[in-house]
């Protein structure tokens, strides 16, 4: 079995818009691969080109140049599309349908028999926590509910590859955790998950590998722990003396023990000691800063 499910090679997209056909290079020649069974995070700040890339992968827009492949086929092949589930960014569905009807419509498009559609529909609505809202028309759904429904319709065909554009957007912290758990459970079922986000903490918790996209260019692809050196940035020590609090930042090479010992000996109270390791967020800022300096 082929174990590359998404191949992107030198992919570019240039939009021309407005009266003067002004050009915007949204994606500037990116290449990466997504392997079977992994959770792949597609990270980048707003406007980086994540949605544009995903739209090319889904056959919604055509690349200016380069190529992309899904499940070993072209993105327009029905054979590939049959094994694919997709959640668009801030999804909008037919608002005159109810939740159950929408999942049923999705099932029809996959040619599923009525009994399977009904069973899977109920299961999926349950799984995303919408059982109670199954018979309410979508125009009465909140943003978070639409997001969950979008996930349900993406999973109706029991896909091998699930592509999610900002699956956590519009959700509260509990909802985000539920979606994270759902993504992890999809991996446990042997599915490959490709999702985009600019919320770094979400990616940090669940991604096997990720790609970082900044202004249409790929800055890095790889397992998170390789993109992130578990580097100690600094240690923050908060001391209290005569009711006054003072925070000190110690460089990585400073001796924290010595500082604490000195503090305790002179009768100063130690309120907090916090080592600060490099987060994905820091890497992110670093990349964006580097990009800004370069231009």
């Amino acid at each position: 079995m082929n174990d590359t499910v998404i191949t992107v090679e030198n992919l570019r997209k240039t939009f021309a818009f407005g009266f003067f056909r002004r050009k915007v290079e949204a994606v500037r020649g990116i290449s990466f691969e997504v392997r079977r069974g992994e959770i792949f995070g597609f990270l980048g700040p707003n406007g980086a080109g994540k949605t544009t890339t995903i739209k090319m992968l889904m056959g919604l827009i055509f690349p200016t140049s380069g190529k992309c492949e899904l499940l070993g086929g072209r993105v327009t092949d029905l054979a590939a599309k049959r094994r694919l589930g997709f959640l668009p960014e801030s999804p909008y569905f037919y608002d005159y349908l109810t939740g159950r009807e929408l999942v049923d419509l999705a099932g029809r498009l996959f040619d599923l028999p009525a009994a399977v559609r009904r069973r899977r529909g109920d299961d999926l609505l349950e799984r995303v926590g919408l059982s109670k809202a199954a018979t309410i028309p979508l125009r009465k759904y909140s943003k978070g509910m639409l997001q969950r429904l979008g996930l349900a319709q993406a999973l109706v065909n029991d896909p091998e590859l699930v592509v999610l554009d900002e699956p956590m957007s519009g959700l509260d912290p509990i909802g985000r955790k539920e979606i994270r758990d759902l993504i992890v459970s999809l991996r446990a079922e042997g599915k490959t998950v490709f999702f985009s986000t600019h919320i770094l903490s979400d990616a940090e918790l669940i991604c096997d590998r990720c790609a970082i996209l900044v202004r249409g260019q790929l800055r890095d692809v790889g397992p998170l722990d390789q993109l992130l050196s578990p580097k100690l940035l600094h240690t923050e020590v908060v001391l209290e003396c005569n009711g006054l609090k003072e925070a000190k930042r110690l460089a990585p090479d400073e001796d924290v023990d010595a500082v604490l010992r000195a503090a305790l000996e002179s009768g100063v109270k130690v309120v907090a000691v916090q080592p600060r390791y490099e987060h994905l967020e820091d890497l992110f800022y670093r990349e964006v800063e580097a990009e800004k300096r370069a231009s």
């Binding site: 889904m58 056959g59 919604l60 599309k81 997709f86 909008y92 498009l109």
Partner: peptide, 14 residues
């Protein structure tokens, strides 16, 4: 305009 095609076109549909 309402982006309802986004969810449809990636389905196995020409």
């Amino acid at each position: 305009e309402r982006k309802t095609v986004y969810a449809l076109i990636p389905k196995p549909l020409h």
